[in-house]
Design a protein around this nucleic acid. Structure first.
Length: 810
DNA sequence: ATTCGCAAAGTTTTT
DNA sequence: CTTTGCGAAT
């Protein structure tokens, strides 16, 4: 080992903190790594360091959450220490391997099938039917989710106890054991079982635990903040005799609490391993100072965290931009326009940009905008290849060959293509199989003995069984060849070819694609008999792994999907109450903290430019809604942002001229609406706000369109005349929903709250401006006036007796 | 066995 | 506005 860091390629260019992590060999290690802090570099260099101290590669295990992360790590290790085969994989893949070795210990056979989410759901529904249980108003999905929760929390079916007074728990208690039996009969596991079985196996078989603990002397866990209790137990069990456990993570980036990730695992790591070495990586190499400052300011509002001092030597950069658009279409259009301009100017390429949103449903507007603007884009997480019907069908044949007990696979293929085995016949088979704890294929073999089966059905079933047996002889062949036989001999391909629809043509193309996947697998796994491996490979893979910087396109994705990535320019859209934080988190403070972390993750993806935006009116689920700015905006240093407020716009016309049209396609060139063309008006019609003095007029943007006739009850925003300027021009502004829904002249749908309720420093909510803080109060009684600071629009004055301000409980 | 129509519900989703 | 699931109808 080299002593001088300057000459050591593994230490060169690293900070003292990073070096200490790289050089750490024995004992527990906690690396608290802020966003963009060079974590992957530290981790890979540390593994390379372990290797060169003479530790065998087979003694090292690195666990990640995604295939992508594992692949990236493997790639970098290969560069640092060529030829060393360190075991790097996802938790689930690792557990699948362990479980194959010890399947018998949990009542499985080593050729078990891994059910994906839809297989599991279908198995659950089948179980409900089989035990003839009516879950009342609970959906199978809710029950599945709750079973998943139990598994993530290390509660096996036998130990599940419903909490008193919890109806869903009571229902789950009835179904969970039966569902497990269904899986066991099918020699199958769901995703959660992979972890649960291994955790239980380690707990109940000390000799196995001891052996594996000794086998994996050096364990490394990435994204430790996202581990759930089962993963925690597994890691813990493997690090008792050899507690050389290194975990990396950032409590501030934990965004999978809703899936059972337990933030306590990382927060309490020092408690679990008292002699832990803690390394904090707080220097950020990714973002500008202004971006980092904003992100740090936001996350500081979380309670459950470890204080971190993020800093960077990078430049100050452009200020973070916060823009309020009138509608989501304008938001998307303006973002597309901004990108198009940069592309035209040649300063950026498409792959430099990313657009984030909280929910997938918001992607649509962007798709249209990008298509219109002719900007190449890709969306993370569309309809996934391996979820397609035809792919699942073909794979189901292979699954059934590998594991004849796989009932889900049987059901999928038994009458596909149609061979005259209808619903009734299948029902009879199931009725025969379930009480005997037989698999459906076993029952099919004794079809003659099954009550109530028609002669024709018995013959068809016999033919199907024969087909499977014939194909089973080929199961040891290479995957591509096997798949070819399946496609032809099952008649699946022929059935698709017969039909002439474009849809089926596409399916055939997808099947060709699957054959290519098989061919590639064969090339990587020379020789026969890798069917099980192939199936495991394809069911533990996610197509978003394919999505990376290969293509030069703008990337559209959810905030969740953005974790671990970085982009020069990030647009973070729809920063609105109900979306960020999401509606469903409102009740629980913990969940609001997770939403804040989600926002933090999104912001810290940006290298050079961060653009936050919101729309005053958002079309969502077919409805146009007035939005409220996100409460998180209050926690950002908005005073140093570049703010563009386009929400409440003032148009003026000279006497005799027409007012602007309120239709969205009104001919007004919104793309050119800038801050200096508009000013704000408070609800009393008086100019106010920071920019009031700069009120300027935009006569040029009017065309000859007629103003919309005032309609009584409409959700459409419209332009209303609100007064005259000193020069006699008519002033219009876009109405707010509060006005639209209230009779004219009435400001508030409900009477004002007694003015004396308000006090300085109180947090209040305004229907248009969102959440703000009372900065000052003056006057008394009916004339009492509050000065309120809002994150998006600055300070506003309100006569309390008449205003729609409401105190916010906090 | 497919197709049609209507009702209901619609965070996020590494595996 | 979608997508999805179920039941009825061809």
């Amino acid at each position: 080992m080299e002593a001088n860091p300057l000459n050591d390629p593994l230490l060169k260019g690293l900070t003292a903190a990073q070096q200490s992590a790289v050089l750490h060999v024995d004992g527990p290690l906690l690396i608290l790594a802020g966003p963009g802090s060079g974590k992957t570099r530290v981790v890979t260099h540390r593994i390379a360091h372990l290797l060169r101290t003479g530790i065998g590669p087979q003694r090292i295990l690195a666990l990640t959450f995604t295939n992508k992360a594992a692949d990236e790590m493997r790639r970098r290790i290969e560069r640092l220490a060529p030829g060393k085969q360190v075991w790097m994989s996802t938790f689930h893949r690792f557990c699948a391997k362990m479980l194959r070795e010890h399947a018998r210990l949990v009542g499985l056979r080593e050729n078990f099938t891994i059910y994906d989410t839809s297989d599991s759901q279908s198995a659950l529904k089948r179980t409900l039917e089989a035990i003839d249980f009516d879950p009342g108003h609970f959906t199978p999905q809710q029950i599945a989710h709750h079973i998943s929760w139990a598994k993530n929390n290390l509660i096996p079916a036998a130990q599940y106890q419903p909490r008193p007074g919890h109806p869903l728990g009571a229902v789950t208690a009835k179904i969970y054991p039966s569902y497990q039996q269904t899986l066991l009969t099918a020699n199958a596991v769901d995703f959660d079982d992979l972890l649960l079985h291994v955790a239980m196996l380690l707990r109940e078989n000390p000799e196995v635990r001891t052996m594996l603990d000794a086998r994996f002397r050096y364990i490394l866990v990435d994204e430790y903040q996202d581990t759930n209790l089962a993963q925690y137990a597994i890691v813990r069990a493997l690090s008792m005799d050899y507690p050389n456990l290194a975990v990396t993570g950032d409590p501030d980036q934990s965004i999978y609490g809703w899936r059972g990730a337990n933030l306590s695992n990382i927060l309490e790591f020092e408690h679990d391993y008292p002699d832990v070495a803690v390394v904090r990586l707080e220097q950020n190499y990714r973002s500008t100072k202004s971006i980092l400052r904003a992100a740090a300011s936001l996350i500081a509002h979380n309670k459950r965290r470890k204080e971190k001092d993020l800093f960077t030597d990078n430049g100050e950069g452009d200020p973070v931009r916060l823009t309020t658009y009138v509608t989501n279409r304008e938001e998307a259009g303006a973002i597309a326009q901004t990108i198009a301009d940069a592309l035209r100017a040649g300063t950026r390429r498409p792959r430099d940009f990313a657009v984030f949103y909280r929910v997938n449903a918001l992607s649509r507007t962007f798709e249209f905008a990008f298509r219109d603007a002719g900007i190449p884009y890709q969306i993370a997480g569309g309809v996934e290849f391996f979820q397609r019907m035809e792919i699942k069908d073909v794979l189901a044949y292979l699954r059934l060959l590998n594991n004849p007990s796989d009932d889900e696979a049987f059901l999928r293929v038994v009458n596909n293509p149609p061979r005259g085995i209808g619903k009734t016949s299948i029902k009879r088979l199931a009725e025969y199989a379930v009480p005997r704890r037989q698999t459906l294929l076993e029952a099919a073999r004794s079809a003659g003995a099954v009550d109530g089966l028609a002669k024709k059905a018995i013959a068809s079933i016999g033919k199907f069984v024969h087909l499977i047996d014939t194909l089973a002889h080929l199961a040891m062949k290479e995957i591509e060849e096997l798949m070819g036989h399946v496609l032809v001999e099952s008649g699946y391909k022929g059935h698709l070819k017969e039909s002439e629809t474009a849809e089926d043509d596409e399916r055939l193309a997808n099947i060709e694609e699957l054959l290519t996947v098989a061919r590639e697998f064969d090339e990587q796994h020379p020789g026969d008999g890798h069917l099980e491996e192939f199936l495991e490979q394809v069911c533990l893979v996610n197509d978003t792994d394919v999505l990376d910087g290969e293509d030069d396109q703008v990337t559209l994705m959810t905030l969740h999907a953005s974790k671990g990535l970085e982009f020069p320019v990030v647009f973070l859209s729809a920063v609105e109450e109900g979306l960020l934080p999401h509606e469903r988190s409102r009740e629980h403070p913990d969940e609001v903290e997770e939403e804040r972390r989600l926002f933090f993750v999104g912001m810290t993806r940006a290298q050079d430019e961060l653009h936050l935006s919101m729309a005053r009116y958002r079309e969502f689920r077919g409805q146009r809604r007035l939005t409220v700015p996100s409460q998180f905006l209050m926690e950002l240093p908005v005073s140093e942002f570049e703010r563009n407020e386009a929400a409440i716009r003032v148009w003026t016309t000279f006497p005799g001229e027409d007012a602007p049209h309120s239709d969205k396609h009104d001919g007004i060139d919104h793309a050119h609406d800038g801050i200096d063309e508009h000013a704000e008006i408070d609800e009393h019609g008086a100019a106010g706000g920071d920019d009031a003095e700069d009120l300027s007029f935009d006569v040029a943007s009017f065309d000859a369109k007629k103003p919309a006739p005032p309609t009584a009850a409409s959700d459409e925003p419209e332009y209303r005349e609100v007064g005259q300027s000193a020069r006699g021009e008519r002033i219009f502004r876009l109405t707010t929903a509060a006005e639209l829904h209230a009779p004219a002249g009435v400001q508030s749908p409900e009477p004002g709250i007694a003015p004396e309720v308000f006090h300085q420093g109180m947090v209040v909510r305004h229907p248009d401006y969102g959440i703000g803080k009372i900065m000052a109060l003056s006057g008394a009684g009916q004339r009492r006036v509050a000065t309120v600071a809002f994150p998006t629009v600055g300070q506003k004055k309100f006569i309390l007796a008449a205003s729609v301000l409401r105190p916010v409980k906090s």
